[in-house]
Design a protein around this nucleic acid. Structure first.
Length: 943
DNA sequence: TACATCGGGGT
DNA sequence: TTACCCCGATGTAT
């Protein structure tokens, strides 16, 4: 079936009212934009007008209202001042050049045909409250754009407040759930909470010592402010006393912050329709304000008759709109029957056939989508709902209990129709499905992996973010967490209102995934990324999911000992540093360090940080220590500081590991991020197990705390040596470098002998290390300056080394230049396996940006190919282990190293299987060298 | 409370 | 003034 026929209409409500707090928006615009940049030649300030206009167009484009109104405050007091004379008393009077802009903004609104409303004796907020209420009664979805939190009391299913965040252009969608999450009370109780807490901005005192937390606690305990007042005597402690003392104030606050929702405004909501602007009036005003044509175009674009309005009112340019599916009730039907009719009988069975997937002319419109919502916690993930969307846009939403009941059916469906199955985030889905007793199978399409493969520099952190990025629409599709009693329950319990709402959202989520598939399929084909997705990323997802679930066992008592020891040593170093400084400063504050080093001690700084001060990083401290060996206090301080930094860091690392130990199994379950690193590498979070110290003895000790778990006898570590250099040798075809690897000699020593033209045996340690640094620097685009810095030699000497190196390995030089020039031509780089990364920065006119892009373009194919090879090796090794039927298993990947937990009696066999898998992951013109080690812990497994 | 900056751990 | 990451602490703005 053809999706394009059925899924074109955007899911935008027919009638959507946007109500704007005019004063609050003008204020924010005024303070966000520097007035110097927005002044007419006659000296009139225009920053607030400009900011207001640009925000207005932005919100209209983002939110697609059909109706719109702006509310303003009126000069003179309101009924609130009579109740509470000091109300808003601390607010500074608005600056003169803001006040003069308010009438201009109103003129602009007139020209645009936007109604604005003021009501003497009342605030804009009351007008807003009234409009929102009228809108709700007339069946509108209403958005309230306001920076005043009093507006939160209006929020319900139909009314959402857009609340500006840190930057005023980031608007938070405050839904009932968002308010509940943030304040732990429902929106209608928010004013109770505000009355207790007070509002400094409005000069309203609350109960001293009572903040949001206590206010929410009481509200939840007694139901509401009235309940609290009734039971005020029962509340003990200082806070209870404070409450009783201020109870009249609180009551007054509550009367003041209640918005009036039934003003007589002399207007009908239906009349607020977004209309075509009066172009000549806009032109005239813009000429006065000296706004350019681009500002005008941008503003008008948002209004009917403007350039892009056709797209939003008719069909969107992409055929991938999100439409709420028809939700089928399976109580009367049974899931299996539903799946048979909507999926099994419609779609072909079988696995994915990889052959023709990368054909750019290919289109796919016959697939089904499965999506489990929930939170992931390795070992005890919590699914909230499972949704299945069929190609005919019919969907079923199951509660966790229902899904468990159907687990066998769903597992079978996933297995039999994997070849037409789409998901978002296979790895996460594996965990959530497993928690429901369902076994996942390699899907045909993963929208998260696909998004990563087509645009690896962009990392959405949620499905919604991916949707708004790739489909350029905002949808409300996610509550952060179902609140209590709102989880989808089973049959008899489930049919409350809350359950109904969740179903719609869950169905919308799966529709989002489906829309992403629609958008990404042509991009994947065009960029030829299917093969990578199927042969690399999807199988890797499965392996990573298993690794995450296994976790890594640690010896907790050893960690605790280490932490205490590092902590003691850090304290000692701190005392010494304090003595030397004659001050008990915070050694973790660069700012305080700067005063001691550069003011008190008058030391000469080295490099500057980007905020202007001298850096206090380790290399600078070392340099200063050398310069000041004769200054006893200074060197004492510097040395102690360095020792503090080192030991304190180690303490923190150990502590962070302890914090992450799972209480159930005593193991650490990291999460491997598969779509974060733009080059194709994995990353590891919570905790990061890819940066456990390894460079010096003290740090390496931490690796000793990683041990084989119950049922296992040792850990094995296998790593590639010099993969990136081998890739350079292979890709450049440089005979000398290839020979260097084939010879099997000490690589760096061998290379040094070629570079310096002296026999291998005569190479000094210095020469070897210089050449080694040069070799590694190549893949990073290291400058001569950087090389000099690192080797502590002069830039001139570094230059000589570089020239000699490239004279010896000419093809390497050529290859690196080709990488950049090809990237410049095509706009992207590619690894050996076709993984792409785009580099728009190569065309930048800013030299720094361009240089950075060039270094990236140099590095990405090399680092990326190494990442590809390791991923292939993991697939191969995992397959080999399974086929051999051994119990030993991979638990960690650290870019070029695999760590395995080895079962008794399997050491030799596993060493053989894994090293063979890694060596033969791909065939290069140079051998892939793998070294392995095995031992009682990770440190002892080193080699 | 949220964000930017600094510093430092890994490959 | 070397690529790619993750994280904690500080200090500032909100």
């Amino acid at each position: 079936m053809d999706l394009s026929a059925t899924s074109l209409k955007p899911a935008i409500a027919d009638r959507r009212l946007l109500v704007i707090d005019g004063h609050s928006l003008a204020f924010r615009a005024y303070f966000a934009l520097p007035v110097e940049n927005f002044t007419t030649s006659a000296g009139m300030a225009t920053n607030a007008v400009w900011g207001f206009a640009s925000m207005l167009s932005r919100v209209i484009l983002d939110e697609h209202p059909t109706h719109i109104a702006v509310a303003f405050d009126v000069k003179g007091g309101t009924f609130r001042n009579e109740l509470l004379p000091q109300y808003k008393g601390t607010r500074d009077a608005a600056p003169e050049d803001l006040l003069t802009q308010l009438p201009v903004i109103q003129r602009l609104l007139d020209a645009l045909g936007v109604t604005y409303i003021e009501k003497p004796g009342f605030e804009g907020d009351d007008v807003i409250a009234t409009l929102a209420t009228m809108g709700e009664q007339a069946g509108f979805d209403t958005l309230v754009l306001s920076g005043d939190r009093d507006a939160f009391q209006l929020i319900d299913d139909k009314i959402t407040v857009l609340y500006p965040g840190h930057h005023f252009k980031d608007l938070k969608h405050m839904t009932p759930q968002a308010v509940e999450d943030k304040y732990k009370v429902p929106p209608q109780r928010y004013p109770d909470l505000a009355a207790l807490r007070g509002e400094t901005a409005d000069n309203i005192p609350g109960v001293p010592g009572v903040g949001d937390g206590f206010a929410a606690k009481w509200i939840n305990q007694f139901g509401s402010l009235d309940g609290i007042i009734e039971h005020a005597d029962e509340i003990g402690g200082k806070k209870g006393e404070a409450l009783r003392e201020n109870i009249e104030q609180v009551k007054l606050n509550r009367r003041v912050n209640a918005l009036v929702r039934d003003l007589d405004l002399n207007a009908q909501v239906g009349d607020l329709v977004l209309a075509e602007p009066d172009l000549s009036a806009v032109d005239k005003l813009f000429a006065e304000l000296e706004f350019g044509p681009r500002t005008k175009q941008r503003l008008l674009k948002a209004f009917p008759g403007g350039e892009s309005s056709r797209i939003t009112t008719e069909e969107p340019e992409s055929e991938c709109a999100i439409e709420d599916p028809t939700i089928d009730d399976i109580d009367t039907d049974g899931f299996e029957g539903w799946a048979a009719r909507h999926i099994v009988e419609v779609l072909p069975a079988g696995e994915v056939h990889v052959d023709s997937l990368d054909d750019p002319s290919r289109t796919v419109n016959a697939f089904w989508t499965i999506h489990v919502e929930g939170t992931i916690l390795h070992g005890e993930s919590t699914p909230w709902s499972l949704s299945v969307l069929a190609p005919d846009r019919h969907a079923v939403v199951l509660s966790p209990a229902q899904a468990r009941e159907q687990s066998a059916v769903i597992s079978r469906l996933l297995a039999s129709h994997a070849g037409t199955c789409a998901m978002h985030g296979y790895k996460e889905q594996i965990h959530l499905l497993a928690a429901l007793g369902i076994e996942a199978a390699h899907p045909w399409f993963d929208t998260q992996l696909a998004g990563y493969l087509v645009e690896s520099d962009y990392h959405p952190d949620s499905l919604d973010a991916a949707v708004s990025h790739f489909l350029d629409v905002q949808v409300e599709s996610r509550k952060d967490q179902p609140s209590q009693g709102e989880l989808l329950l089973d049959g008899d319990q489930a049919q409350g209102d809350a359950g109904e709402i969740d179903e719609v959202l869950a169905a919308r989520r799966v529709a989002c995934v489906s829309a992403l598939v629609c958008k990404l399929v042509p991009m994947m084909s065009q960029r030829r990324q299917y093969e990578l997705m199927h042969t690399v990323e999807i199988p890797v997802s499965e392996i990573l999911a298993a690794m995450e679930l296994r976790g890594a066992a640690v010896d907790q008592s050893r960690l605790v000992d280490m932490r205490d020891r590092f902590a003691a040593e850090a304290r000692e170093a701190q005392e010494q540093a304090w003595d030397a400084a004659n001050k008990r400063i915070n050694l973790q504050s660069p700012k305080q360090l700067q005063t001691v080093l550069f003011d008190d001690m008058q030391l000469r700084g080295t490099r500057k940080t980007k905020s202007g001060g001298y850096t206090t990083d380790a290399s600078a401290l070392q340099e200063m220590a050398i310069r000041n060996v004769n200054n006893e206090r200074a060197s004492m301080f510097l040395v102690s500081l360095l020792r503090f930094r080192e030991t304190n860091k180690l303490k923190q690392i150990v502590q962070s590991l302890l914090d992450e130990v799972n209480g159930n199994d005593g193991r650490i379950h990291t999460t491997f991020e598969q779509t974060v690193a733009a080059t194709g590498r994995l990353s590891s979070v919570a905790p990061n197990l890819q940066n456990i110290p390894n460079r010096n003895v003290a740090g390496r000790e931490i690796r000793g705390a990683f041990v084989p778990g119950e049922g296992y006898v040792s850990l094995m570590s296998c790593d590639y040596s010099q993969v990136e250099l081998r890739i350079m040798a292979h890709c450049s075809g440089d005979e000398s470098l290839i020979e260097a690897f084939r010879s099997g000699a000490d690589f760096h020593r061998y290379v040094a002998s070629l570079v310096y033209g002296i026999p291998v045996d005569d190479i000094t340690a210095d020469q070897r290390s210089h050449v080694k640094a040069m070799s590694y620097g190549l893949a990073y685009g290291l400058s001569t300056y950087g090389l000099a810095q690192q080797l502590k030699i002069s830039p001139a000497e570094a230059d000589v080394l570089k020239d000699k190196y490239f004279a010896t390995f000419g093809k390497v030089h050529e290859y690196l230049e080709t990488l950049v020039s090809e990237a410049r031509e095509k706009g992207y780089t590619e690894t050996m396996f076709g993984r792409r990364r785009y580099f728009p920065g190569l065309r930048s006119t800013n030299r720094r940006v361009r240089d950075a892009a060039e270094r990236g373009a140099l590095n990405a194919p090399i680092q990326g190919t190494a990442a590809d090879i390791m991923k292939l090796a993991m697939i191969k090794a995992d397959g080999a282990l399974r086929e051999a039927g051994v119990r030993s298993r991979i638990i960690l990947q650290i870019h070029d190293e695999l760590v395995l937990e080895v079962a008794g009696g399997e050491a030799e066999r596993v060493t053989d299987l894994v090293s063979r898998a890694m060596e033969t992951a791909v065939h290069l013109d140079v051998p892939l060298d793998v070294s392995t080690g095995i031992g009682d812990d990770w440190q002892l497994a080193a080699h």
